[in-house]
Simulated scan of single mutants.
Amino acid sequence: MAEQFTELDKLKETLRANHETADKHLEHVSRQDVLTRIERIIQTVVSSVSKNEAPVLSVINRSNWANVRFHKSVGLILQPDASVTAHRCDCPSSANKFALILKLLSVIYKLVQSDSYATKRDIYYNDPQLFGSQKTVDSIVDDISCMLKVPRRSLHVLATSKGFISGDLCYLEEDGTKVDCSSSTTATPVSSNVSGIRNIVSFAKFILIVEKDATFQRLLDDDFCIRLSPCIIITGKGMPDVNSRLMVRKLWDTLHIPVFALVDADPHGIEIMCIYKYGSVSMAFEAHSLTVPSVLWLGLLPSDIQRYRVPEEALIPFSQTDERKINSLRSRAYITCQPAWEREIEEMQRLKWKAEIQSLASIAPYFLTRVYLPNKLRYGGWI
């Protein structure tokens, strides 16, 4: 097994030597600090009312690309002078948002004060008519986290995870529950409280991020973690949730091992990989705890389509949406700073074809797990 992973072992040693052990995550904030920051906001509102003025809550525009900048060793981070949107209680277009922010600040204050936790789903179902949708709760909780400049976990609001993990990994949950992810047939849901995980034990040589649940299940069914053991595989089931991203970051910080991405050779797959690696615009305020800048693109590379002679009938022609997305990707700083990635994206745009990971099955049923991935890992076929 040691001979199989010559290039992987070299990479692992390089990463161990270069990994920054200093924790640069968003500052740890005590419960009292969170309460104090909420009280300051409420005092501002009360002060405005006492002066017979309309209270205003300013929220950073988390969807605006102009509010972020690219830092190569971190990813997309929030600009210090990010623009804000003012939500006034006397303005019909923003009064509802103003009220919902105050409502959630009240909920969060009580949770932090009592040292208890609730999921975003719990909060929504406590008053679904008030919030209107789960998406509204999710967005405002992130707005408040950004407004208070604290990690979302400090708000005592948890999110239900959608991701799964499997492989050579054991750890303890915050409540002392032992979790063993080594089952070869059943995946373990990603924890909804990643920050509380402790006592991580693993002899994994690498972590493999898998874009799709279907591919993840295929790796499980073919005993991938046993055949190429020890390793850890994780999926966010498409566009990753925050917990899946937190988990990848925590494992990277703890184990100091290579992290690879296995995504479709299409613009959507590349963007998902970039979110794990460099983060997203909407969560740029918490980039230090969510991004893993050392993520390597293992596959499916656009150049692999011709290299492995994937049959044309297994390919999918580009759509106008794909063209727009790929042009958007090519303009982003985190792509233009990586010539190898840029060449692969240019190749995809030139071919006008995209390929899902499952297209490798058209070559042979077990080609992905028994040929493609072992060869990539053995000979260093990543960028």
Rank of each mutant, 00 (worst) to 15 (best):
N67T: 11
K162F: 06
P365Q: 06
E3D: 08
I165C: 07
V49F: 03
R37E: 14
S30R: 07
V263A: 03
L169S: 00
N327E: 14
A214S: 13
R40W: 09
V281A: 01
S63F: 15
W382S: 02
L169K: 02
R350C: 00
W252Y: 05
R40S: 15
N243E: 15
I197E: 04
F367E: 02
R69P: 06
L104D: 02
I234H: 01
I165W: 05
L360G: 01
Y125V: 05
G299R: 03
N67Q: 05
H28L: 14
E211V: 15
P302T: 00
S303C: 02
R249Q: 10
T21A: 08
K277M: 10
N199M: 14
V210S: 01
V45K: 05
G163I: 15
F98G: 02
R245I: 15
V137G: 00
D241C: 07
F98S: 00
S63H: 12
K72H: 06
T177M: 06
I316G: 00
E347T: 01
S184D: 12
L360R: 01
S83W: 14
W252P: 01
E174N: 09
L368I: 14
L148S: 01
E39Y: 09
R227C: 07
F206S: 05
K376N: 04
S182A: 15
N327H: 13
R307H: 08
G299C: 14
E323K: 12
D241G: 09
K354T: 00
S303D: 03
S294Q: 15
L105Y: 06
L148Y: 00
D175E: 14
H288Q: 07
S182Y: 11
